[in-house]
């Protein structure tokens, strides 16, 4: 009787096409480095012509730095250097002073090395083909912009100092001496990505004015670093603590 039941069960199972079932699962995170794997020569050969083309266009030495220039929260040398560089280059291109500059923290994609800074280094920091925009906004909208990024502790600004208190921005003082008043207007230099609502900045939809100055952020940085390199002075990575948390 028992045997019969077993046979019946087997017949039923095969008739239903029972497939397979999972009996065990294990995982392994394999680090990819010189210890775990040698270089596959066929893949290396495939890459070679691409790398040669890349080296040709990316190896121009722009400037030198006495140390690694890193990004960080709430403030760090790279945050300050990039926003200052953009404000300087953007103002020149715009033809008049701009009150402040803004970078989205997530848009800074890499750090800069100690020693030589090449075109390739700037491409790694700013790989996106983002254009610089000059937004004219009310003080209230600028406050909203800064609060939006301060809430994530990702406020990266040039041309001003500010304090973050419970995710809100206070005590804003501009390098040019202005103070933040809700009904006055200010010019902000930022990427078209953010100006068009990227990084959840949809509240920037209706500024007083939106001017595309037809200058790629990356080109602005390359121009800046090339000029710095020409002075012969190396970059000394320091943060001036312009953004602080209370």
């Amino acid at each position: 009787m028992k045997k019969y039941l077993l046979l019946l069960a087997l017949a039923t199972l095969s008739a239903c096409n029972p497939g397979y079932h999972l009996t065990n699962r294990t995982s392994n995170r394999i680090g990819v480095d010189s210890l775990t794997a040698t270089t596959d020569s066929s893949m290396a050969n495939f890459l070679k012509p691409y790398r040669q083309g890349l080296d040709k266009s990316m190896n121009e030495v722009l400037a030198r730095s006495t140390g690694r220039i890193e990004k960080g929260k709430p403030d760090a040398p790279l945050n300050d250097l990039l926003t200052d560089a953009l404000l300087k280059q953007g103002s020149e291109k715009y033809g008049k002073p701009i009150d402040c500059s803004h970078l989205n923290y997530g848009g800074i994609r890499s750090n800069l090395p100690e020693g030589t800074i090449t075109t390739g280094s700037i491409f790694e920091v700013m790989p996106f083909d983002n254009q610089l925009i000059v937004l004219t906004v009310t003080g209230a909208m600028l406050q909203e912009l800064m609060n939006h990024f301060a809430q994530k502790n990702e406020l990266v600004m040039g041309g001003l100092r500010a304090k973050i208190h419970n995710g809100a921005v206070q005590d804003v003082t501009f390098t040019n001496g202005r103070t933040l008043k809700p009904n006055e207007t200010y010019t902000v230099l930022l990427s078209d990505y953010v100006a068009n609502g990227g990084d959840d900045a949809g509240f920037l939809k209706n500024p007083v004015r939106n001017e595309n100055i037809n200058y790629l952020m990356r080109d602005a940085l390359i121009d800046y670093f090339r000029q710095v390199g020409k002075t012969g002075q190396p970059i000394n990575p320091v943060s001036d603590g312009r953004i602080s948390i209370e």
Partner: peptide, 16 residues
């Protein structure tokens, strides 16, 4: 930087 690896074992028939 990493390659993920998941090893699965399957048996035929009744699912557990």
């Amino acid at each position: 930087i990493n390659l993920g690896r998941i090893d699965l074992a399957f048996d035929k028939g009744k699912a557990v």
